[in-house]
Nucleic acid binder design. Sequence first.
DNA 1: TTTATTTCGGACTAATTACTCTGAAATTTA
DNA 2: TAAATTTCAGAGTAATTAGTCCGAAATAAA
Lengths: 145, 145
Amino acid sequence: MKALSQVGKYGLRAILYLVAYPSENSYMSIRQISDELNLSFHFVTKIFRELTAKGILISYRGPSGGVALARPADQIMLIDVVKALEGEDYFDKCLIGLPHCGTAKPCPVHEFWKETKVKIQQNFTETSLASLSEKIRSQEFRLDE
Amino acid sequence: MKALSQVGKYGLRAILYLVAYPSENSYMSIRQISDELNLSFHFVTKIFRELTAKGILISYRGPSGGVALARPADQIMLIDVVKALEGEDYFDKCLIGLPHCGTAKPCPVHEFWKETKVKIQQNFTETSLASLSEKIRSQEFRLDE
DNA sequence: TTTATTTCGGACTAATTACTCTGAAATTTA
DNA sequence: TAAATTTCAGAGTAATTAGTCCGAAATAAA
């Protein structure tokens, strides 16, 4: 089940690295992140520009510049990043692609799919980048290879 | 959340139409299905060829030919159609795209995502085309517009 | 002030997915 | 047998997504 585009996947991995291995109250360069995760530097740059435009990251140019979280990691939820990269309507899609699928005129799998989306959305809304970064730092969870 | 490709979406809608409005123990033409659902005839034809090759449909050429289910509708599960059109590995994908994400080396969202996939897979495994076709015939659920 | 470093902006190319089209093969009907 | 109807096969085209690249702008350090 391909739930995220490449932009979403790379974006999540990259921002999680940024959160999990923060430079002491300063910016981290995109180059470092893309090198560590073996992702295309240019592609990550493009994705991060989007996250900066959406107010999730802040950036600074020049030597010792880079990117940083715009808010503390416990105040940025998974859902914020996903919606920023995949679109605000991410959880509003009908499984079989009907335009105005809803309670009034549902498709045959509407009810089940709606419940599924609600559960995922709840989890993403409750999960902060901070909680995920702890897992990564604990070495039990990984972001690449 | 775009869980299915266009092939998957159109394929499901088309086969559900076939099941919901069966011609009396005979074949239904792809033209009728694509016309009713306002889908591209050629595209549906291509998708149905795949379902025929996978043993989900049978087909017959010539006048009064068309397609039909290879088995009774209560013996074809949603998961059969989805896997035929989206790939057998449909439920084996890591959310953030890590190659060998599993219990041994999980990504930070592995556990939650695994549970989510299991629930969807269970539902798809339990849901037959027959049960969905009843819903459609009841007029409370739709396949187009 | 010059040079190096970094993000920004956007044009460009490559790959994949989505869809179209044409003709062949099978089959029925006239 | 001839004509009409239908799927089969696969090449071709269009649109979208993925990824690359280059130069400009900002900033820091030499």
